[in-house]
Design a protein around this nucleic acid. Sequence first.
DNA 1: AGCTTTAATAGTAATTTTTACTATCTAGTA
DNA 2: TACTAGATAGTAAAAATTACTATTAAAGCT
Lengths: 154, 154
Amino acid sequence: MSTTENPESIIKKLSEFSNACRKAYLKLTHQRYEIYRELLESVDHPAAETLHKRLLLKIPTMSLDTVYRTLATFERHGLISRVQTVESQARFEATSSQHHHLICSVCKNIIDFQWKHFDETALPPEVVEWGIANDKHIVIYGVCNKCLYTGNNP
Amino acid sequence: MSTTENPESIIKKLSEFSNACRKAYLKLTHQRYEIYRELLESVDHPAAETLHKRLLLKIPTMSLDTVYRTLATFERHGLISRVQTVESQARFEATSSQHHHLICSVCKNIIDFQWKHFDETALPPEVVEWGIANDKHIVIYGVCNKCLYTGNNP
DNA sequence: AGCTTTAATAGTAATTTTTACTATCTAGTA
DNA sequence: TACTAGATAGTAAAAATTACTATTAAAGCT
C-alpha cells in the first residue's frame, strides 16, 4: 500500500529508488529525488498539479513541466503508477505491492485496499485468450463514510 | 457487453433510451438520439472526439460541445458510463450488464469481458467499512494478441 | 577537485482535452 | 400553430498536458 509509511520504510524505498535510477541510467537529480520522495510520502494519490504545489514549498523554482515530465519518466521505468480513474486529471502513486483502489465520487479521495484472494484467483479463459495481461486492478467507486456523515452531496 | 449487438437488440435499447429520456424530462433531440445510437453501435468504447468525428458523417453540423455536454448528461442519468483508464482522453460506453475491461497498452483498444464469479463474490471487510460501494470494475492492462503478432511495440 | 559530455531543468509557449457562453433553434405541450 | 423551456451551433475560454530552448547540473574521466 502507498499509505502511511514509517520513516525507515521511506528511507529504504528512497535508497531503492536511487539504485533503480542508477541501473536505468537516469541522472539522480535533486528534483527527481524530491518528486519521488513527495509521492512516497503522499497518502492521497496526488495529481501532477497537486504534487507540484507541494513541491514548490520545498523547491520554489520547481517547474510544472518537470513534474509532468519526471512522472512520465518514472512511469516508463515502473517506479510509479498512474491510477485508473474516470477523472480528467491523472493521479499517481509510488509503485508498491499489489493493491486496489477505492475512490469516493464526492471528495475524490483515493485509498488503497488489498484483496489477496482476488489477486491469487486465476483469470477467466476469455482474458487469457485475449493476450498478455500485465496488470489487473479493481477500482471501486462509491461514497466514503466521511462524505456520507458530513452530508457532502454525491 | 457493449460489443456487437444484433439489430433487434439495438432497436430495443433505443426504445428503452427514449423511455428513459421521457422519464428524466430530457428532451429527445435528434442529436441526443444519434449520439446514443452511435455509442450503442460502437464496439470500441470511443472517446468524445472519436464519436464526434463519426457523427459528423451523419449530422455535419453536430458540434463537439454537444457531444461532450450530451455524454455528461447521459452519464448523470446513468445511461452511459465512462471507462476507467489511465489515458488522458475519456472513453465511453452505453451502460449495460455488469462487465469488466481489457485494455491493450499498444493499440488502446478496449474490450469487455464478463466474470460472474467475481461479480458475485462479497467484497472484503475493508471495503465495506469504507463506505458505500456503487460500482466495482476490474481493468486489465496488457497487450492483445493482434498487437503481439503484428509486432506493434508496447 | 576540475573538465567534459550529455541529459535534465526552468520558464515559457503550444497542444490537447474539456467546459462555458450566447444567440438561435426545436421538442414538448397547450 | 404558437409558446416556452431547454438544447444546440459556433465560438471562446479554461483546464490539463506536452513541447521548445537556453541554461544548468550529474556522472564519468582525468
